[in-house]
């Protein structure tokens, strides 16, 4: 099977049962993507596929051949961290750091969803054209990423600071 990860192509001989998460972690060494529940309940395994965030633990790898997969290793560049990564450090948006790659990939996907006008459960008028980039919107939209250390405040601040300008409605 052939996979495109962080703009590079990878070959892997795979069992149909292998999840995209285990492909990344156990077969290709992309251990930045984390396993926290293996059942879509924590978000630690979040990666971007064609720019959209998904839970890689619920994804059978075989379904994702030929898609553009971005993991935390593909966020930012070799020389420089993504602005969101820097903001996470600055705002202490993590403690143990385990859910962090998932939070970051998720937030990048979230920003794009807001840009595309995808509403959320707290969007006051679901048909509204512009989504208010409020803390409440961030919190609702990031609720698929658990952080047991409780770095939620710092995460919201980091996300807000990074995307505020871009997403000012």
């Amino acid at each position: 099977m052939n996979f495109t990860i962080n703009e590079h192509s990878y070959e892997a001989e795979l069992d149909n049962r292998t999840s995209l998460l285990d492909l990344l972690r156990n077969h290709l060494g992309f251990t930045g993507t984390k396993k926290g529940c293996d059942q879509g309940a924590c978000g630690a395994c979040t990666v971007l596929v064609d720019g959209e965030r998904i839970n890689s633990c619920l994804a059978l790898a075989v379904q994702y051949q030929g898609r553009a997969i971005t993991t935390i290793e593909g966020v930012g560049t070799a020389g420089e961290m993504h602005a969101l990564q820097r903001a996470f450090v600055e705002h202490d948006g993590f403690q143990c750091g385990y859910c962090t790659p998932g939070q970051i990939c998720s937030a990048i996907g979230m920003a794009d969803e807001i840009k595309r006008g995808v509403p959320s459960a707290v969007t006051e008028h679901v048909a509204a054209h512009n989504i208010d980039f409020s803390n409440e919107e961030i919190r609702e939209r990031m609720s698929g990423n658990l952080c047991r250390c409780g770095a939620y405040n710092g995460i919201v601040e980091a996300v807000r600071e990074t995307f505020a300008e871009e997403l000012a409605s």
């Binding site: 930045g32 993507t33 290793e73 930012g76 450090v89 993590f94 750091g97 962090t100």
Partner: peptide
Amino acid sequence: RIDGPLKVQG
């Protein structure tokens, strides 16, 4: 955090 950059980059 000293280990912050490592953690945010996975």
